[in-house]
Nucleic acid binder design. Structure first.
Lengths: 203, 203, 203, 203
DNA sequence: TATGAATGAGCTTTCATTCAT
DNA sequence: GATGAATGAAAGCTCATTCAT
């Protein structure tokens, strides 16, 4: 069959990807070498180079696959009728986001390391950030249109601010021993974001 | 004389530090080698090892010296009588913080790179974060005590949130071509932080 | 049909040869790889191996084809009646030889490189040298027979000497910026060869 | 002693050079690796790189040292009073040149290979050629001044021609089984160069 | 205190080559 | 006849680090 060759190639590539993920998890990004990946995949020294340019290439592929699950969360429909409803939707989204990150904890740590080390990975992460903020921007514009949110603020700037907060707490919670309970973090993030610190809550 | 020897040692150390800063600025953190630093300082291959364990050691010393100027901003007295006054004080502090970062732009980029690459530097950066958040925590507690800020929120958690926002926009602005004007960023950060997105400002 | 298969084989071989020449011209001999040739010919990785053992094999085939044009010059009939006539014939032959080399300049450079790098190519070039010197030897013997040339000298040794001179100036002129005008080179070569440096021409 | 360190460095460099020469003689230029040189010199893997950039660097140093002995031959005083005396001087010089080459046979073969393979070595060989031709040029000008040689010919062009002849026969004789006896080669070279092929010797 | 000669670990990378299809 | 997936050999090279002076 003509396809069996292609089939075999795809299988080899997947075996390499699986192996790469294991090696990254075991050794971290900086200590991973192409050699370790080939050893784990039980492929020849040159084989990894047939499919991937370097270890960044491996990581970016794994990162993209993983982050797809995150972007699904970002694209949850956001059409609140009231402030309270908005609060619920936003708070729920944060919860899903942080929970997924905790679930993928070890992998997220590898990504964090790789983002710091490799310009290429960092650029790819910035792309992912841009996807998130684009999605958040739309949500903010919806809320402004329906007079739920302050229309004098720039949606895209606020979107970045909001994503940054999410990202930073995400990096915090994936590390051992979070200083606070996740629910508490979510409550604080959402409250400040939506009501501000100096607004009097009793009113 | 014992003193002249001590004197010489201090001078050598300073010459190495000056050289290290220049090399870091020229080559970035990852591409800097102890050899380059020794060359720039015109000291022997073994000399750097007398004073510094490795290149992280060099960077941490430089980072601490630089961040001292930032902590001065964090420790500006914060005793607002009204919300408006609080807004002014906070907004001014952000402005000083971002302006200083922009002034030290190139060095901050090196720090960012080093934080990503080296666990040791990252840990030291976390210490610096803790200093900032401790200071912010105190300010929040003051505002809560005087009924200016929502007392139901955890001061330390809010402090982290607030510092994270500052930090992320700081990394944003030190890179070329910020998407927005600095004043705009400051206004948005401070507004969301203090009044929230979903509070209606006109009311 | 059996014939169409043969036909196809010949066409593939020719496509590979054409591609090899282009790749050699573009990358030189050492930087040429079988892979590059296959890519240029748009054939599969294994195809080149069906027709050629290695890149030397490609080059030797191309070199033989090219040098055929040179050997035509070597076999121009040489039957001078006088010294002057001999001078004219020899000088004309050199001119044709150098002109052809200049015309094939880029290819000759590749040959030169290949001769230096590969023992196999060098051996093949020695064969070509032998063809030339055999032809020159005959010419010298003719001149000696007709008392035009010094009969005490060994025709084959002189033939080698004469070919070496031609070859070396040939390598010189195919490189950019020859120090002298071609006509001048020809005049000097032929004069020294035929009359010597220390014979007084005016007498 | 302050010098003992320098002394040690010089000794190491010399040990490496000696080792390199042996390895080049044993394996030829292309098959020589820095690793083989380090092994032979019993130095660490990195030591060769302290003193030499790459294997070309090794070879060029060895080539320069060797060729110094050749340039001594080129600079033998040349002040003939008669044609015969000139013949004797020239013929003697060729003899010394070829004899030295034969003595250094194996090394010359390595140089030949290296010249063909490496642009850098080739360029260095061209420098050596230029030294020789400069020296020959002076000799020719002397002969022209004293009316021993044809003044209508360009000294530098003739010098190149003469050196090329010497060089080519040199490469010939360093290879096994020379077709002719060295004395014969010298006689022919010198005769053609000085008297030409078509001058009648009896006159 | 300062030096700098020497070390060696070990990863990356390329490519000719094979062989099942 | 043509293909292309897979292999693996092996050299280059860098740099932190040591230690005798």
């Amino acid at each position: 069959m003509a396809n069996s060759r292609q089939q075999q190639a795809i299988e080899t590539k997947n075996r390499l990807l699986k192996a790469a993920e294991l090696v990254f998890l075991e050794h971290g990004f900086q200590n991973t070498t192409i050699r370790l990946i080939n050893n784990k995949a039980e492929t020849g020294h040159g084989t990894a180079y047939v499919y991937f340019k370097n270890k960044e290439d491996f990581l970016i592929k794994i990162m993209e696959d993983t982050m797809e699950q995150f972007t699904k969360i970002a694209s949850i429909p956001f059409h609140p009728a009231t402030s309270n409803e908005a609060y619920e939707l936003v708070s729920n989204q944060v919860k899903l986001f942080l929970s997924l990150a905790i679930k993928k904890k070890e992998l997220m740590k590898v990504f964090k390391e790789a983002i710091g080390v490799s310009k290429e990975v960092e650029a790819r992460w910035q792309d992912i950030r841009d996807q998130f903020t684009a999605s958040i921007t739309k949500d903010i514009m919806y809320a402004q249109e329906y007079k739920l949110a302050d229309s004098s603020l720039s949606p895209s700037l606020v979107a970045r601010l909001w994503f940054y907060t999410n990202e930073m707490f995400m990096w915090e919670v994936i590390h051992e021993s979070p200083s606070n309970d996740i629910e508490d973090i979510i409550k604080h993030m959402t409250t400040i974001y939506m009501k501000g610190l100096y607004s009097n809550p009793q009113q």
